[in-house]
């Protein structure tokens, strides 16, 4: 059987989700953001919410997320995405409202907004991309940077005596009464990507069914910030990030 005989529309098993448009993404080669964008697009398509989804993009690398997914987007001030999402969801309860934030946005400048929105049990989903570094601004130390990890602003490695300890936002969120589903996933391999997709789907379903707020943390790579190749960054993440940021569901209020 020739290649031309196989490449026919009826034999298609995987393609770029239709919600993701043809604009070339500005992310570095191998960045985890692209995979998460794809998962969000796939889940929204599967749930048939193309016309009902409203995303809130952060300040950080994902600031241009609205250029790539053809749904409604709002751009929030730095860290204020959960506050904006709260407003959208309260005024427009029939919409699927989610925020897409990085660790600098969610765990640093937006800590208060994030914790209070989750604690109020707003029916929103927060997608939290944790790559332990400030990617967009050039690889500075973030609240989630691991102890001993080298960044532009802690070139000798993060030292607890000077810089404090890494912040586990997802663990904090799991202790709050308002959260329905809190999970930590990753997108480094095919099984992990499938699990992450299920987690995003569950979180979106919860927020549509009014069960409370949902936090999906995706432990990600920033190969440019970490100064590694994409494949090496995935390996480094498995060896160093996963022991500290353990994957799995932290809270699931059925």
């Amino acid at each position: 059987m020739t290649r031309e005989e196989i490449i026919k529309p009826e034999n298609l098993v995987y393609k770029k989700p239709t919600l993701m448009n043809d604009n070339p993404m500005h992310y570095c080669p191998g960045c985890s953001h692209g995979v998460v964008h794809k998962l969000i697009a796939e889940v929204i398509e599967e749930m048939g919410l193309e016309n009902k989804a409203v995303g809130v993009s952060p300040v950080g690398c994902a600031v241009f997320a609205y250029n790539y997914l053809d749904i409604d987007w709002e751009e929030a001030a730095h860290g204020r995405a959960p506050a904006l999402a709260t407003a959208i969801k309260r005024l427009w309860p029939s919409r699927l409202v989610f925020t897409y934030q990085g660790d600098g946005d969610l765990a640093c400048i937006g800590t208060a907004e994030t914790i209070h929105a989750l604690n109020r049990g707003e029916n929103i989903t927060i997608i939290f991309i944790n790559n332990a570094i400030y990617g967009m601004t050039g690889g500075q130390m973030a609240p989630t940077t691991l102890l001993g990890m080298k960044t532009a602003t802690c070139p000798y490695g993060r030292d607890a005596a000077i810089h404090g300890y890494p912040l586990k936002m997802t663990e904090i969120a799991a202790t709050l009464e308002g959260t329905a589903y809190v999970t930590r996933q990753s997108v480094h391999s095919v099984p992990a990507i499938r699990k992450a997709k299920k987690a995003i789907r569950k979180a979106f379903e919860n927020s549509m069914n009014g069960k409370g707020s949902n936090l999906v943390e995706i432990v990600s790579t920033c190969n440019s910030g970490w100064k590694m190749s994409p494949a090496a960054a995935n390996k480094w993440m498995e060896e160093n990030m996963f022991p500290f940021y353990q994957l799995g569901d932290l809270k699931d209020k059925e």
Binding site: M1, R3, E5, I6, I7, K8, N11, L12, V13, Y14, K15, K16, P17, M20, P24, M25, Y27, P29, G30, C31, S32, H33, G34, V35, K38, V187, S189, V190, I193, R194
Partner: peptide
Amino acid sequence: LEDTCIGCASCATVCPDGCISVYKVKQ
């Protein structure tokens, strides 16, 4: 290696830019 492909779509799943389409047939 054209003949070796089994259409498992692993490549397309991990592609961050959504560049890959996968086709599969059962002979």
